[in-house]
Design a protein around this nucleic acid. Structure first.
Length: 545
RNA sequence: GGUGGGUUCGUAUAACGGUUAGUACUCAAGAUUUUCAUUCUUGCAAUAGGGGUUCGAUUCCCCUACCCACUACCA
């Protein structure tokens, strides 16, 4: 009764982990941490036909990026553990490497009369299914049909026993009891009852691959690994009765885990569950990390799109769960503290890309200027800018001593210059990459002027005043900082009774190339008088005066 | 078709059986600002439908509608 809490995330390496899968892993992780228990990773690769190279690595890397670190099943260098150790007592954690242990459990069920050998080929069954469907009926392999099919129940032992050796693709099927009501409890959905007559005799083990199917492997491993709660997707709810019956057949009811089935993530619009196509269609990632498939098709990832993992995780956590009050921003530790399966929503949650962006924006403004500067520097370098005065940057010899803040002709800037800009623009951005779009004019002079804005402001009655204002700024004798310039500048324009908006926007046009951006005092003190003068000359020759 | 699950503003969600049905995102308007953005204020907008039970139902029960999942020797 006082068992240590142990939960597991058991993905199938058939492709990149979908954000819904990340959420399932997250809820498992939060549950484990909250109860001071273990979070285990197990790779369910019993279907060799659907194996995708690289998928396993992707899944672990994705979880790692999200801060969802397994206690067991994956080692410190991110590899799935294959050999038993104190920390990983249930190795291997890949079902394909556990194949030897499943057959005996399947045979045990046959011996106890809970399962039987079946010799029908997949083709035969498919034909039968098609035949009955054509007649408007549904084929189910169950207590009614199994008598007329080829198996150890319908054939005499003398006939089927030799087939075990000669036949290469027989299976072991679970013998679903007749007309029994299975009573189940789900931590999220409550009590559920299902009559076994609606269920079929599921394949538990297949000779052709010498491997179990999901159902058997899952139950055996959950039992062996002492799993206490199974938190998984809603698509498993229909097989819950089978799983209950399997625990019963093995006599493992005492340690049977409790189950919680999570609802699915739905498309932002229309009907159905969220798919990769929705992301392509509506312009958002559905995968945590970028993924390139065998055909070379690339799927974008939240990481590459510039999302912070904390924001992504926070957003996912709130999709189908809430703390019961109005709080929306949570660190992983706070989520661990507040999480509860009781407050997980039963209905499907429609994913909202706008909300995901909002989360990132919130996290971006919580970051320190230094941290954001570090992230912005690579973006600047991609745009051909060079930043000096930081360990990470490639330093041109002597550059640090010669550059005073900004060198526009050589595109060299000090880290401090970048940091000052970051602190001014961080509230305007959703992603770090936005910084460039917002502030490129602080690194390189505008090469064109937005036509609409130019037409609106660059008129003689305005720019004649702006030119005089530019002279005033140029001749300003005080300390050339925003703080000391701003007041006198405003005073100067107001004192002359000039239209503030028009004058400022003419200057802004020259400095930014558009009528948007930071305050004029901010811009000129940042770029310096020299660059300011150059940009005034540029606009005069470009637009005339 | 069968079985199971689900249904509160456009979206995510809150509401011991008693609230003017709250909050956030989006959107719109206004204020502030030298522009843009930010910020602030305000607004738009929901209990799927029908029956019960009850003094009283978003909440409990039933029916209908709609949505989703499952219905493989895939997970």
């Amino acid at each position: 009764m006082d068992r240590r809490t142990r939960v597991r995330f058991a993905p199938s390496p058939t492709g990149p982990l979908h954000m819904g899968g990340v959420r399932t892993a997250l809820y498992n992780y939060l549950y484990a941490k909250q109860h001071g228990g273990d979070f285990i990773i197990r790779i369910e690769d019993t279907d060799s036909h659907r194996f995708v190279p690289g998928a396993e690595k992707y899944i672990i890397e994705a979880l790692n990026w999200c801060g969802i670190i397994p206690d067991e099943g994956v080692d410190a260098s991110g590899n799935v553990v294959e050999t038993v150790s104190e920390k990983h007592p249930h190795a291997p954690y890949r079902q394909s490497q556990r194949r030897s242990i499943y057959r005996k459990y399947a045979e045990e069920l046959v011996g106890k009369g809970y399962a039987y050998y079946a010799f029908d080929t997949a083709d035969e069954l498919a034909a039968k299914r098609a035949e009955m469907e054509a007649a408007g009926q549904t084929f189910i392999y169950n207590h009614i049909t199994r008598k007329s099919l080829r198996n150890s129940l319908s054939m005499p032992e003398s006939e089927w026993r030799p087939l075990l050796e000669t036949h290469t693709d027989w299976t072991i099927r679970f013998m679903m009891p007749e007309n029994r009501v299975v009573k189940m409890d789900d931590l999220i959905r409550g009590h559920i009852e299902v009559n076994t007559d609606t269920l079929d005799d599921k394949v538990l083990w297949k000779k052709a691959d010498e491997l179990p199917t999901y159902h058997l492997a899952n139950i055996v491993d959950d039992h062996l690994m002492e799993i206490t709660e199974v938190i998984r997707g809603e698509e498993w709810l229909p097989s819950l009765p089978l799983h209950y019956l399997l625990y019963e057949a093995f006599g493992w009811q005492d340690t049977q885990p409790r189950f919680a089935h999570l609802s699915l993530l739905l498309k932002p619009d229309g009907k159905g569950k969220l798919s990769k196509r929705d992301g392509d269609r509506l312009g958002f990632p559905v995968f945590p990390l970028k993924w390139t498939n065998a055909e070379g098709e690339v799927s974008r990832g939240y990481r590459e799109d510039g999302y912070f993992p904390e924001a992504f995780v926070n957003m996912l956590a709130m999709l189908g769960w809430n703390p019961g009050d109005d709080r929306e921003l949570f660190t992983m530790d706070e989520l661990t503290e507040a999480f509860s399966l009781e407050r997980v929503i039963k209905s499907g949650a429609r994913f909202n890309p706008d909300k995901a962006k909002w989360y990132n924006k919130e996290y971006l403004r919580m970051k320190s200027d230094d941290e954001l500067t570090d992230l912005f520097i690579p973006v600047l370098e991609q745009h051909g800018m060079q930043v000096v005065g930081c360990a990470k940057c490639a330093l041109t010899a002597g550059a640090e001593v010669t550059v005073q803040g900004a060198d526009f002709t050589n595109h060299i800037f000090t880290r401090d210059y970048v940091r000052r800009i970051v602190s001014l623009i961080k509230e305007r951005a959703t992603f770090v990459a936005d910084f460039w779009d917002i502030a490129s004019y602080l690194f390189t002079a505008p090469v064109s002027y937005v036509e609409k804005d130019a037409a609106k402001f660059w008129k003689e009655e305005n720019y004649s005043l702006a030119l005089k204002t530019a002279d005033f700024i140029h001749d300003f004798k005080g300390e050339f900082t925003k703080e000391s310039l701003e007041g006198p500048l405003e005073e100067y324009i107001r004192g002359n009774e000039w239209p503030m908006g028009k004058v400022m926007n003419c200057l802004r046009l020259a400095l930014v190339g558009a009528s948007s951006g930071l305050g004029i005092a901010d811009i000129v003190t940042l770029i310096g008088k020299e660059e300011f003068a150059r940009r005034m000359e540029n606009i005069k020759s470009a637009l005339g005066c």
